[in-house]
Computed example of a mutant assay.
Amino acid sequence: MKLLFFLIQQSNIEKKMEEAPDSAYEIGVVIGSYLPFVVLAVIAYAIYHYTKKKRDSE
């Protein structure tokens, strides 16, 4: 499922890059496409770290 979503996302990014008016737009597309995944990964790690620390202290 994750692989399918990644492939769909990748083709969408490539299409936007081809239609990009300049390089600044391309950078914005890349940042905007990958930033949500990075933020979710950081939040997931923070929750994991918090629960692990809480469980170890008990």
Rank of each mutant, 00 (worst) to 15 (best):
D56A: 15
V30M: 15
P21N: 09
V29Y: 00
Y25L: 04
A24T: 12
L3T: 10
V30Y: 15
L40G: 02
M17E: 04
M1S: 14
I47Y: 10
V30R: 15
M17L: 15
H49W: 10
M17Y: 02
N12L: 06
K16S: 01
Q9Y: 05
V29H: 00
Y48P: 06
V29R: 02
A41P: 04
K54S: 12
E19L: 07
T51S: 11
Y25A: 10
I13N: 00
V29I: 08
K15H: 10
V42H: 03
Q10V: 04
D22L: 03
K16G: 03
L4Y: 13
L4E: 13
A46E: 06
K16W: 00
I13V: 14
V29F: 04
K15P: 01
S11F: 00
L35P: 01
A44P: 01
I13P: 01
F5Q: 14
Y34M: 02
V39N: 03
A20Q: 04
L3F: 06
L40V: 03
Y48W: 14
E14A: 11
I13S: 00
Y45L: 14
E18M: 10
M17W: 04
S23F: 09
A20W: 03
K52R: 14
M17F: 05
V42L: 11
I8Q: 03
F37M: 11
L40F: 05
Q10R: 03
E14K: 07
E26H: 08
Y34G: 00
